[in-house]
């Protein structure tokens, strides 16, 4: 059984292997992937997405290095660790409160962009101004 399906956006500017890494992390956070689940093989991924197989393997190595998955020779790549937190599950009280807040924001006339901007601002206040980790760093000296 195929547990996850990767969506590759070639125009996003994010390196393809990082898109796979992020999507696995996201699936782990949402509980779509759980410990013991097998990731699709490189062949399965490329047959669905038409990307280079070495890119998939690079993403899996990255996830392996982060301790999230492990490669079992001859068997495949398996999830080792979950990133799901009870508070973030679909039936958690926190999620219900947030959904309730979204409904009120919409009723108050805010559109999707307004809500996203507001959420991003509060997120930055609560957790510090921290952009998502991106290995695709740009450099420069002023």
């Amino acid at each position: 059984m195929r547990v996850v399906e990767f969506r590759i956006d070639r125009r996003s500017g994010v390196a393809t292997y990082l898109q796979i890494v992020h999507q696995v992390e996201q699936a782990l956070r949402l509980g779509l992937l759980a410990p013991g689940d097998k990731l699709p093989t490189a062949k399965e991924v490329v047959a669905a997405t038409a990307i280079n197989p070495n890119t998939v393997l690079k993403a899996y190595r990255e996830l392996d290095r982060a301790g999230l998955v492990e490669a079992r020779p001859g068997l495949g790549t398996f999830v080792r660790k979950s990133l799901a937190r009870p508070g973030a599950a679909a039936d958690s009280p926190l999620r219900a409160e947030l959904a309730d807040w979204m409904t009120r924001a919409r009723a108050a006339g805010l559109d999707r962009e307004d809500v996203a901007a507001l959420a991003a601002a509060v997120l930055a206040e609560a957790f510090g101004d921290h952009a998502p980790a991106d290995h695709h760093a740009t450099e420069g000296t002023a």
Partner: peptide, 11 residues
């Protein structure tokens, strides 16, 4: 076709 090509390359 591209997907078939990549699967062939992978295998």
């Amino acid at each position: 076709m591209m997907a078939a090509l990549m699967a062939e390359a992978a295998e």
